[in-house]
């Protein structure tokens, strides 16, 4: 009889463990993450050792052109900037033979700005038609996501830092930046 109680108890414990698996499964399955590309094209020019300029169209506007985003707008729980590719337009006939110290891209909320991509020692001809990839830090992405979903005002900014001492003009550089965003959709909504 004692062993009977033991096995009944074991079966109850097993049921609890397995029902725990069921609960975990259900919650895992309610959130689907899809990736969408955000393409930003703009031109940069300057004559100082550090140029900072807005990138024109903002991330949310650009996301709005994506069907997966648009169709699921009301049930999106995260917009995490993931990877980025930066290159110069292949079709432009002119590219300066210059090396920039850094090219950095930011998302700026008020006075706080978040680095989303950084490229060091940018030898411009090497970037013509050749995407160079980077990945945004996860904690930074999570913070940006929170603020984007809060509908806070922001701007996207490119910063070009030239090698120390160089202040001559550099003509218009046609820049391509593609960011991929990981969008989490709550399927149960």
């Amino acid at each position: 009889m004692k062993s009977g109680f033991l096995y009944i108890s074991l079966s109850v414990i097993l049921s609890i463990i397995l029902s725990g698996c069921y609960a975990d499964t259900v919650s895992s399955l309610e959130r689907l993450t899809v990736q969408v590309p955000i393409m930003i094209q703009y031109s940069s020019s300057g004559n100082s050792d550090r140029t900072e300029q807005p990138m024109g169209r903002d991330i949310m506007d650009l996301l709005d052109t994506n069907k997966a985003y648009k169709d699921n707008k009301d049930r999106i729980e995260d917009i995490l900037i993931y990877q980025g590719a930066f290159w110069l337009d292949q079709t432009d006939p002119w590219v300066p033979q210059e090396t920039f110290q850094t090219v950095r891209f930011f998302v700026k909320f008020g006075s706080q700005q978040y680095l989303i991509a950084q490229y060091d020692n940018v030898v411009l001809p090497e970037y013509v038609g050749t995407p160079h990839l980077s990945q945004t830090d996860e904690a930074t992405s999570a913070e940006i996501s929170k603020r984007l979903l809060n509908k806070e005002q922001y701007s996207t900014i490119a910063e070009i830092k030239r090698m120390p001492g160089i202040k001559t003009d550099f003509k218009t550089i046609p820049i391509h930046l593609v960011l991929t965003a990981r969008i989490t959709i709550n399927l149960s909504k």
């Binding site: 698996c21 993450t33 990736q35 990877q83 590719a85």
Partner: peptide, 23 residues
């Protein structure tokens, strides 16, 4: 998922649900 980049197109993919065990 791993995005795939080229100078003319970017392809992105649907991700998995991060499940290590399933009922």
């Amino acid at each position: 998922a791993t995005p795939l980049f080229s100078a003319s197109t970017t392809e992105t993919f649907v991700e998995g649900f991060n499940i290590s065990n399933i009922s």
